[in-house]
Design a protein around this nucleic acid. Structure first.
Length: 283
DNA sequence: CGTGCCCCCTGTCAGC
DNA sequence: TGCTGACAGGGGGCAC
């Protein structure tokens, strides 16, 4: 579900409410969400103070300092939201009635509770040492919104693979944070057919893809993400970007550019949406 | 090593 | 009103 813009929205929303807060208790309702042993998960995080809330690709990253005989050790909590994961901060006297599938609750020292909620339970919570966290982060591709992510770097990486460019965009080792919605939107805006082998993109197409990918991600962050079904912000509200989608989920609706009906194509096990007129097939 | 397919799980919706 | 099958923002594992 959540891609880069949704994860970024959640990180920004959580930050003011959780940074500086101490975790008083950890409650686990669904053990299969944890990448570490449940008892260890509790022991590692209980009593820790949340120092930073950030994002890497589609993952939320919380740095937590935990006192331990006279000094502090740092644990890094990484939350992958899967398809239906939510991280919601529930304030002391507010209702959490709409949280029907809670998985993990972190009770904070101001009475609020950070709830990990996940209907399908494809999400995962991992706890890393700083060293293991760096190793994990290094296994992911570059951040597409980073200043250092240039059109030259994108073109160079595209030229290394014969995969369909839509599959290329979904591979987190190649580029971090892009999922099926924004891959399809970026390709439409750059007028590139989703099945084009990555290495066959021209210099000009690489430039357009770089520009349009970054533009759509920024615009989606501005809209607080895309809510189709399950995604919610850290306050439990919906993102507004769904109404701005041009092709994703719009099979048979007219292309916003030329009016040709949008087509859906399944490959790599998921749907690709595109305009057959604006995005010509590979030869 | 790279790539494609299946599966994990729950909920919703279209069609019969 | 059911029932069934398709499908859904992700990603790990496995065969080739």
């Amino acid at each position: 579900m959540p891609e880069l813009p949704e994860a970024e929205t959640i990180a920004r929303g959580l930050r003011p409410g959780v940074v500086g807060r101490t975790i008083e208790a950890v409650e686990i309702l669904r053990e299969d969400l944890l990448a570490v042993h449940p008892r260890r998960f509790v022991d590692l995080l209980t009593g820790g103070t949340i120092r930073t809330v950030g994002r890497r690709g589609k993952n939320l990253v919380l740095s937590i300092d935990v006192p331990e005989d006279g000094h502090e050790r740092t644990e890094v909590l990484v939350v992958n939201l899967g398809m239906s994961g939510r991280l919601v901060l529930v304030r002391p006297r507010s209702s959490s009635a709409d949280l029907t599938h809670p998985g993990v609750r972190l009770r904070l020292d101001d009475g609020s509770t950070l709830v990990y909620h996940d209907i399908r339970r494809f999400g995962r919570l991992s706890v890393y040492t700083p060293r293991a966290h760096r190793r994990w982060s290094a296994s992911l591709g570059p951040e597409p919104l980073a200043k250092s992510f240039t059109t030259e770097e994108l073109s160079r990486r595209l030229s290394e693979s014969a995969s369909p460019v839509r599959s290329w965009l979904l591979d987190q080792r190649r580029i971090a944070g892009v999922g099926n919605i924004y891959a399809n939107e970026a390709l439409f805006r750059a007028r590139i057919h989703p099945e084009r082998p990555a290495k066959t993109l021209t210099r000009e197409e690489g430039r357009r893809l770089h520009r349009q990918l970054r533009a759509v991600l920024r615009e989606a962050i501005h809209g607080r993400g895309t809510t189709l079904r399950d995604y919610r912000t850290s306050e439990g509200s919906e993102g507004s970007y769904a109404v701005s989608l041009r092709v994703y989920g719009r099979e048979n609706r007219p292309c916003p550019t030329c009016g040709t009906p949008i087509e859906r194509l399944v490959f790599g096990g998921r749907s690709a949406y595109y305009c057959p007129n604006c995005q010509r097939r590979p030869k």
